[in-house]
Design a binder for these strands. Structure first.
Lengths: 194, 194
DNA sequence: ATGTTACCGTAACGCTTGTTACGAAGGGGG
DNA sequence: CCCCCTTCGTAACAAGCGTTACGGTAACAT
């Protein structure tokens, strides 16, 4: 075939590079050259793998979703009960360490980029809706006797809270230590009786 | 003096233009020329008023904070009690109509831009901390007998929830109608006993 | 061994960017 | 009435951008 001939791995490495640049340098410096440098190659490879810059971003966005999804499903499978699963899944959505903090920054970067990119905003909405229904399903499992509107409202409250928490902590980690974030989550779960 | 000689009004108009471009075209298209076009002038005026692009963004960011602050204080003054004030202040932080939706988009745009701009991130943190202490003060007024850690935890939960809600609704307004957002806020206040 | 084909680095293209220099316009002080 | 000084549009600059074209090179089939 070719010199390396590992198509999916290369694509993943490039998306990882997108992720890295977005986390460390922000959306404004997310250029094809910066991605190539972060991936240890040249723009030739990047443009060979993807038709244009936007396709590269879209693929990186999809990879981020796939990664998050895999982690969430592993947490859900490892949990010993529906409430523990719910807590674990919400827990990983906050910015508790450097890893999740960078993820939150990248997530916001993609969201900001989506304002002027129809494909990105579509992907964003799809992911958000699937995330929402996942949490609703987990809440239903944890509180089977709740009416649907209570499930929906509570799910929305928990989702937005953890997402907002991630945004706040990503931008100012010193002001929002992990312990405070966890205390907030536990207080919320208790308040909603979950 | 000069042709128009209305310095502060011009500066505000330019910041309004920054706001407009950021809301309609996103961070990636937020160029000096786009701002000048939106303000109905040329890049000459922009660069005459501000030493460089980043100073322009920073000023626009400060203006956004001042505007929000004024609105929040008006709501707080008009409220008939501490709980009503708390609800009104949290309420305006969500993306309920086109106006607040655009504000949320702009807010996220500035946040994404702050990743690679020390002045912006500093301004962001300052605003967030002041916002946080404001909500803590309102909660203390609404529930004077609460211990400080409960006030802090609850304030954090409410702040992050409304902020996250604004982000979600800004990116997908059809999926998050205003009524759902308000129901979520009221459910949260009830759950936290506020 | 050789031809073919896919891979990918090199280098350039045209365009847009932030920024700078300069000149015209026009109101205030003498 | 003239001068000066601030204001701001015009035009240019170098740098950086996304994208394209091309050539060398490595791996496979024959």
């Amino acid at each position: 075939m070719s010199r390396t001939a590992d198509r999916p791995a290369q694509g993943e490495r490039l998306s990882q590079a997108v992720w890295s640049v977005l986390a460390e340098q922000g959306l404004e410096r997310l250029t094809v050259r910066a991605v190539a440098t972060a991936a240890g190659c040249t723009t030739g490879l990047v443009m060979h793998r993807f038709p244009n810059r936007r396709a590269l971003l879209l693929h990186a966005r999809e990879l981020l979703h796939a990664t998050t999804r895999a982690r969430v499903e592993a947490l859900e499978a490892a949990a010993r009960g529906p409430r523990e699963a719910l807590r674990a899944v919400l827990h990983q959505g906050m910015a508790l360490d450097e890893q999740t903090r960078q993820e939150a920054i990248v997530w916001m970067g993609f969201l900001a980029a989506a304002v002027s990119d129809d494909n990105l905003i579509e992907e964003h909405r799809r992911n958000n809706r699937s995330w929402r229904s996942r949490v609703e399903r987990l809440i239903t499992a944890a509180a089977p006797d709740w009416p649907p509107h209570r499930v929906a409202t509570t799910a929305l409250a928990l989702i937005t809270m953890t997402e907002g928490m991630a945004a706040y902590a990503a931008a100012d980690p010193a002001a929002f230590p992990a312990a405070d974030q966890e205390a907030m989550l536990d207080a919320a779960l208790a308040a909603y009786r979950l």
